[in-house]
């Protein structure tokens, strides 16, 4: 799949929905961890694997720790 923002956003949204952690009003500035989607380390690891599977790369695998969907989108925009 492409790394277009809409596609990446759908991947993240679908993932959060599948683990029942999609915050109300989820957007590019919503925190992924505490005070937001509240992903724990294993769920973050799963998000990393999901992004890699769907889009061929992911920010976590190169040592980045995006805090929001916006930072994930920025990673692909700059890739």
């Amino acid at each position: 799949m492409s790394t277009a923002p809409a596609d990446v956003q759908k991947t993240v949204t679908d993932f959060l929905t599948s683990i029942e952690k999609l915050p109300e009003g989820f957007g590019t500035d919503t925190p992924l961890y505490a005070d937001g989607a509240e992903l724990d380390s294993l769920e973050t690891a799963e998000l990393s694997a999901t992004l890699e599977d769907v889009h061929g790369s992911d920010p976590y695998s190169i040592g980045e720790m995006p805090q929001t969907l916006g930072e994930i989108l920025a990673f692909y925009a700059g890739a």
Binding site: S41, A45, G63
Partner: peptide
């Protein structure tokens, strides 16, 4: 085990 930057590995 699938290597993973967050946890070393995840169950795949």
């Amino acid at each position: 085990g699938r290597p993973n930057a967050m946890t070393g590995a995840i169950v795949a």
